[in-house]
Structures are given as structure tokens and as C-alpha cells.
């Protein structure tokens, strides 16, 4: 399958970069085609400005602020996000990517009346989140994993009905050890090697 891997971390030698590399290597080895999108490296601008907001509901493909990203999103069968959980959610960089790139008529169709929106990302069969959290697991569950829910429920609703979900987190990053990090990378490898399709 063709997988768009969206990566967001400002530090090139971060642990998230190691996760990204493990993910790309494992997926390619399993025969998938990986399209890596590194938001910091691209200097992506996550802030939707007034003019774009005014046009948002009637956004046409010709007006899309990042046509290249729209095409890559359309070409993907699977999406995997690799990012650090900051303040219990997505880094602003990644949140802004959802806000600006997941536009109406590309990812969903807005109904005129009170009906629900119609999903248009039905070609996406896999939606994955691989992250690191400063918080412990129990507290992340108490506060209900806002970042995970934004993607695995909110964005999931715009994907295909049979779209599979994947979530992995290394909790308590500030107390992590070389061993815990190596174990996590091994778990990522094991999990991603199982992806079929």
C-alpha cells in the first residue's frame, strides 16, 4: 500500500526521528511505498489566515493552499503520523496541517442542511499514530488522549468505513532509558511489519 507518513519534530536527532526512520525502513521492507512528509523540514506554515478562512467552506481544488500536499493525501492508501505529544495533543505544526490541508471537497463534503458531513477520504484504509508522551499512561487515559482522539476519531470519521486504526505511545518520555527506547523501536518494527495490503 502507499503510505503517507507525516512527521513533525523540530530536532533532527530526536527520538521521534528514530521512530520515523524505523517506520520508513520497516514499511519499505514489507513492500509498501512510503511518502515521507517532514513538516518542520519543509517549513510548513500551520496558521490559517483570514482570507483562507473566509474561503474555507467553499474551497475549490484550485484554491487549495498546499496543492502538492492535497495530491499526496489523495494518492495515499494509508496515513501514519509520527509526532511528540505536546500538551496532550498534536504539535501546533501538525494541528495546522490538518486545519489547512484537510479541506472541504477534498476530505469531506459539507451538506447544506442539518445532515452529517460526507467523508471523502474513503481510499484511506489505515490510520496510525505513533507518538511519545511525557505523561504516564494512566494520566493520558484520564485526560482521554486528546491528540489521539483528534486523529483516530475525528479524522477517522472522514476515512473509509473499514479503515483500520493503529496507536502506539512511549509514555513517560522524561524517564525513558536507552533500553525503554530500544524496546519501543522494536515494538514499532514488529507492529508495522504486520501491516498488509
Amino acid at each position: 500500500m502507499r503510505i503517507l507518513l507525516v512527521y513533525s519534530h523540530p530536532v533532527p536527532e530526536s527520538f521521534c526521528a528514530a521512530i520515523r526512520d524505523t517506520a520508513v525502513r520497516t514499511l519499505e521492507k514489507a513492500g509498501h511505498e512510503v511518502d515521507l512528509l517532514d513538516l518542520y523540514a519543509e517549513g510548513f506554515d500551520p496558521v490559517m489566515q483570514a482570507d483562507e478562512r473566509r474561503r474555507y467552506n467553499e474551497m475549490q481544488r484550485a484554491d487549495h493552499p498546499y496543492p502538492d500536499h492535497a495530491e499526496r493525501l489523495e494518492a495515499a492508501d494509508g496515513l501514519i503520523f509520527v509526532y511528540p505529544t505536546w500538551w496532550y495533543g498534536l504539535p501546533a505544526m501538525l494541528k495546522g496541517w490538518l486545519d489547512r490541508v484537510w479541506t472541504p471537497e477534498l476530505t469531506f463534503h459539507m451538506s447544506d442542511g442539518p445532515g452529517p458531513i460526507e467523508p471523502l477520504m474513503t481510499h484511506i484504509n489505515l490510520l496510525g499514530v505513533i507518538t511519545t508522551c511525557g505523561a504516564p499512561r494512566w494520566w493520558s487515559y484520564v485526560v482521554a488522549h486528546p491528540g489521539k482522539r483528534t486523529i483516530l476519531r475525528g479524522m477517522r470519521a472522514l476515512c473509509g468505513k473499514s479503515c483500520k486504526r493503529l496507536f502506539m505511545a512511549h509514555y513517560l518520555m522524561d524517564k525513558s532509558t536507552p533500553e525503554s527506547r530500544a524496546n519501543y523501536l522494536a515494538a514499532v518494527e514488529k507492529r508495522l511489519a504486520k501491516i498488509r495490503g
Binding site: P46, V47, M48, W86, W87, G89, L90, P91, A92, M93, K95, G96, L98, D99, W102, G134, A135, P146, R149, T150, R153, G154, M155, L172, D174, K175
Partner: peptide
């Protein structure tokens, strides 16, 4: 937007709610 804060507000939390400002870290605990 998209079941979350607009990026500009999410980033305000990311950049301003820092260790020593909104929380302290002791032995990995917040």
C-alpha cells in the same frame, strides 16, 4: 477546528505552558 484548537492556539500552549511556568517536573512527574 478539527476537534481541536486552531494551530495558533495549540502552539500558544506548546510554547508558553513551559516547565517552570505552568508545571514543574520532579523525578519525571508533573
Amino acid at each position: 477546528w478539527n476537534y481541536g484548537f486552531p494551530a495558533i492556539l495549540k502552539g500558544w500552549f506548546d510554547r508558553v505552558f513551559l516547565p517552570g511556568v505552568s508545571f514543574g517536573l520532579a523525578d519525571g512527574k508533573v
